[in-house]
Design a protein around this nucleic acid. Structure first.
Length: 566
RNA sequence: GCUGGCGUAGCAUAGUGGUAAUGCAUCGCAUUGGUAAUGCGAAGAUCGCGAGUUCAAUCCUCGCCGCCAGCUCCA
């Protein structure tokens, strides 16, 4: 029995419990998913938290009774007959192709139309728990009726369930929506609107460090920074095709004196206009324009989420204009850049997706080949996301796993033969004729907002010293050491370090606690002896061993630690 | 956008058809201390916004805004 089979069986048990307690609810489908299972029901009354706990109790009983799971093959007519009052099951029974078996599975008094894949009996479910209830559309189509989906999870043993719940707790502790405001990094203000991020001084500081790190990488690779306007004539997005493909995702037009403007949802047309502003020779290529470009997209209200799904954000964007011959090499190097960037932030577990275009064109084979070849040349395994590409070309998406194994989608590198065509871009070839360049769109961190959110969760707010907004705090034991604390702080600042002095009139324990909750990497305690000796007592985050070192030595150590990461 | 839940000082929570309580944070005073909370005191809230019902609404009803769990979407 696989974990999926166990969980699928748990879904049957849930439906059994629902049949017992809420006979009017119509069961639809109930598959196993990554972290558990769900079952969708049609019922007019909502399921309450109280209902869930009753259902869970009932499920435990069903598991305990250890019902055998028995299946039998039936004629379509029998299935249709059985589900006369359940249009969802009827629809499913009708859609099973001729020749394929139609099967019913039974545990105790509950029988479900199901293709199979179960535990032998309900007793094999060692531990089961209902998690939440939420709406879900029938067949995932927002034009179809909405059902009530009950989520649950199941494991072979209670220990595994407990571990999973502990994991969820750990994830909640790292939630950037909680840590961000707690560490005074950013906020989202109701007065300004959802999905619009206010970067506080400390968050802005960290973002600046990240941006500078990215800038250094770009400079090394010959990118040229550019800056483009946030608002331009709407016509530009008609030409690019964004308006016809994504009008619903753009903020509406702004009309002034008969001219229609749009907030930019994308930086590419801007970079294209810079390219077009002069003529180019094949000798100039590749041209690489980079920009921390702030864009605005009208994401639907229900989709907004902390820093990871917002309405205004800044991409670490760049567009490469190259000859078809250069495409392969440029793509490979861009992929290398992406991995170098991620590794610098302690990410080392990646997944790669080749997302193809839904409506394929004649250039897609070439574009996809560039992506495949790049991945294969680096020996990187990848999956295909059919139809997941941009409207102008296929793309490579890089997903990463954070410190506790969660997946995040960040970087993307895309090949584009379409926009050069739409904007009639050209360069003069060695043959004296005009040729069409190929574009590579790439955002490696993705957006500064999203990347920052992921960093917070990855580190659990414990930024490594090179990223920490405050790297060390001088903590005097009494106010008699204040002057010395300021002197020591000045030495650290002179070494380019970010340091604060705790001037509060509190006892040492209170100060330590305060700075620990602020997740400062180094708390430097100075009392009588330290002030007399010119030392600090180092309380390092994550290290219970304290040590006393001369202030100059500590400054050099911390400086080296910070430099090592850059 | 859809379904369900939620919205009370900066934060976390309590509570009620008769304008609100506690803890932390803040400020003041005392205290001058050795590694995760010193004591006392003060101040701080048109109970998300707007309308309705009512003698009276933070509480009941409706609309809007925002948040949460999902669904759908994601150039």
């Amino acid at each position: 029995m696989t974990l999926d089979e166990l969980r699928h069986t748990a879904a049957h048990v849930l439906a059994y419990a629902v049949q017992d307690l809420f006979p009017e609810a119509k069961p639809t489908i109930g598959p196993a998913i990554d972290n558990g299972f769900y079952y969708d029901f049609q019922r007019d009354e909502p399921f309450t938290a109280d209902d869930l706990s009753k259902l869970e109790t009932r499920m435990h009983e069903i598991v305990k009774r250890d019902y055998e799971m028995t299946g039998r093959r039936v004629e379509r007519s029998e299935a249709l007959d059985r589900y006369q009052s359940n249009p969802f099951k009827v629809e499913m029974a009708r859609e099973i192709p001729e020749g394929e078996p139609i099967t019913l599975y039974t545990i105790g008094e509950f029988t479900d139309l199901c293709r199979g894949g179960h535990a032998k009996s309900t007793g094999e479910i060692g531990a089961v728990k209902l998690m939440s209830v939420a709406g879900a559309y029938w067949r995932g189509d927002e034009h179809k009726p909405m059902l009530q989906r009950i989520y649950g999870t199941a494991f072979p043993t209670q220990k595994e369930l407990d571990d999973y719940l502990a994991f969820l707790e750990e994830a909640a502790k790292r939630d950037h929506r909680k840590l961000g405001p707690e560490l005074d990094l950013y906020s989202v203000e109701e007065d300004a609107g959802g999905g619009l991020v206010f970067w506080h001084p400390k968050g802005t500081l960290v973002r600046g460090i990240v941006e500078n790190f990215i800038r250094e990488g770009l400079a090394e690779r010959g990118y040229q920074p550019v800056i483009t306007p946030h608002i331009v004539h709407e016509k530009l997005y008609e030409t690019s095709g964004h308006l016809e493909n994504f009008a619903h995702g753009m903020f509406g037009p702004i009309e002034v004196e008969g001219q229609r403007f749009r907030l930019k949802p994308m930086n590419c047309p801007g970079h294209i206009l810079i390219y077009k502003s002069q003529s180019h020779s094949y000798r100039d290529l590749p041209i690489r324009y980079s920009e921390f470009g702030t864009v605005y997209r009208f994401e639907r209200s229900g989709t907004l989420h902390g820093l990871t799904r917002v309405r205004g954000f800044t991409q670490d964007d760049a567009h490469l204009f190259c000859t078809p011959e250069q495409l392969q090499g440029e793509f490979e190097q861009t992929l290398d850049e992406a991995l170098r960037l991620m590794r610098a932030f302690n990410f080392d577990d990646f997944e790669y997706f080749l997302s193809t275009r839904e409506h394929r064109g004649p250039t897609d084979d070439i574009a996809e080949a560039a992506i495949r070849n790049a991945l294969e040349s680096r020996n990187l395994p990848y999956s295909i996301d059919e139809g997941g590409g941009a409207f102008y070309g296929p793309k490579l998406d890089i997903n990463l796993h954070d410190a506790i194994g969660r997946k995040w989608q960040l970087g993307t590198v895309q090949v584009d033969f379409i926009l050069p065509e739409r904007f009639e871009l050209k360069y003069r070839g060695s043959d004296g004729a005009d040729h069409r360049p190929v574009m590579i769109h790439r955002a490696l961190a993705g957006s500064m907002e999203r990347f920052f959110g992921v960093l917070i969760e990855h580190f659990g707010g414990n930024f490594p010293a090179w990223l920490a907004p405050v790297q060390a705090v001088l903590t005097p034991i009494s106010e008699h050491q204040l002057d010395y604390a300021h002197e020591a702080a000045a030495k650290l600042r002179a070494a380019g370090l970010r340091v604060e002095v705790d001037e509060s009139n509190e006892k040492l324990g209170y100060k330590i606690r305060h700075w620990k909750t602020q997740k400062v990497p180094f708390i430097l305690v100075v009392g009588k002896t330290e002030a007399a000796d010119g030392t600090v007592n180092v309380n390092e985050r994550g290290n219970e061993t304290k040590r006393t070192v001369p202030i100059d030595v500590f400054a050099a150590e911390l400086r080296a630690l910070v430099d090592e990461r850059r």
